[in-house]
Write a protein that binds this DNA or RNA. Structure first.
Lengths: 209, 209
DNA sequence: CGATTAACTTGACATCGTCAAGATAGAACC
DNA sequence: GGTTCTATCTTGACGATGTCAAGTTAATCG
């Protein structure tokens, strides 16, 4: 059941990074609850308490994984808006699609990043908060942009509207992930339908994509 | 640490119901993970394995609690549409508000009813499915009604639109419950903003409540 | 080269879900 | 009424888990 250590035997040298890689795999395989520190340590070939020298507790490990997730998603999101060839409403459409696809492609990671485990009960790490909060705020900034561009409703309060839009994406993502009356095979249709609702107000849209 | 049994000593007589009551309380206090069968048994004043004669396992117990939740919510929802004095779009508004309020007032229960614990990983009971599925379908029926009443977009596919609308409510509920960039004190504003987006298309609405 | 210290180890404990085997008492049947 | 049946409840046990305490190892720093 044990795996190889990369170095001699006692001091691993690069345990923290190795743990993170293995942990991400165990997460995608077994889910948040199924990811146990003992299995993780065993997989990496190290004693069960070794991880505690790199992560305060399970929560800290999960937070660290989530951090990577946020950075990754941030990168994807930035790429979308950096691509300037697309018309504005197409960028919005692509953004929503990408969000949902990211969630569906990495269900357990998404669960970790935006689920109750870290934010409700588990106390997210300060380090995680510093990465995640800007990500949350980015959502508000985007909404303001869309309003200024006249894509979406301009009469509603920006913060409320951003909560509604993000809520929509988040909710659909959750329904898809948990398999509640929604199927990932219809991801694009659901995504476009959501965007159509957002764009409804504006003159140059309204119909299905 | 132990509590009283209602009957003589050995046979409880009404353990299943008693367990459900205590379990619901433990759930609201400690959350899904914090609800342990052992603590539950102890609280009721019964041995740790006694609950297993009434519930196959923890999942079955959780499913049973969720069932009650669905029945309760169904009752609330029906009441809204049975009240015929309100105009249609006001009923829609009230419905969304009530949904979010129900979620915020019973966060742990909501988590159980619509979270991954039962639907993704934990295999919901057949009994639960029989109660929950109609509840899910009701959401589609409502959407169809709103479309027929001309409240919301009629061009979009009903199923997709219902997934988007429910997704929106679900997502906002989750953001509120998990405390992710949303605060329950703004529940009504967020709710009305969401409804405003839904109604956007129709001529007789558009502005904030 | 010796001492400090970070990294890693084993041992132990409490908590948890759950199975197996035995004890109890209400119900059913003669 | 007495006997048997069976649902209900009990104690005992096992393995998994998160985490603390105390010891070991080896890299680093003076």
């Amino acid at each position: 059941m044990q795996a190889i250590k990369s170095k001699s035997s006692y001091h691993h040298g690069d345990l923290r990074a190795t743990l993170l890689v293995a942990a991400r795999q165990l997460l995608t395989e077994n889910g948040i609850e199924g990811l146990s520190l003992r299995k993780l340590a065993d997989q990496v070939g190290v004693s069960r308490t070794a991880p505690y020298h790199h992560f305060k507790d399970k929560n800290a490990l999960l937070s660290a994984i989530a951090e990577e997730g946020f950075l990754h998603w941030q990168h994807i999101a930035n790429d979308i808006f950096a691509t300037s060839t697309l018309p504005l409403h197409e960028k919005l459409r692509l953004f929503v699609r990408s969000y949902l696809r990211y969630a569906v492609d990495n269900p357990q990671l998404y669960d970790l990043m935006f689920g109750r485990t870290l934010w409700q009960q588990g106390e997210a790490t300060d380090s995680l908060k510093q990465i995640a909060y800007p990500c949350f705020q980015h959502q508000v900034a985007l909404t303001r942009q869309w309003q200024q561009q006249g894509l979406i409703n301009t009469q509603q309060d920006t913060l409320r509207l951003s909560q509604v839009i993000w809520g929509t994406m988040h909710g659909i993502a959750r329904l898809l992930i948990d398999g509640i009356y929604a199927d990932a095979s219809h991801l694009d249709e659901m995504s476009d339908c959501a965007v159509a609702v957002f764009l409804q107000h504006s003159p140059e849209s309204g119909t299905t994509s």
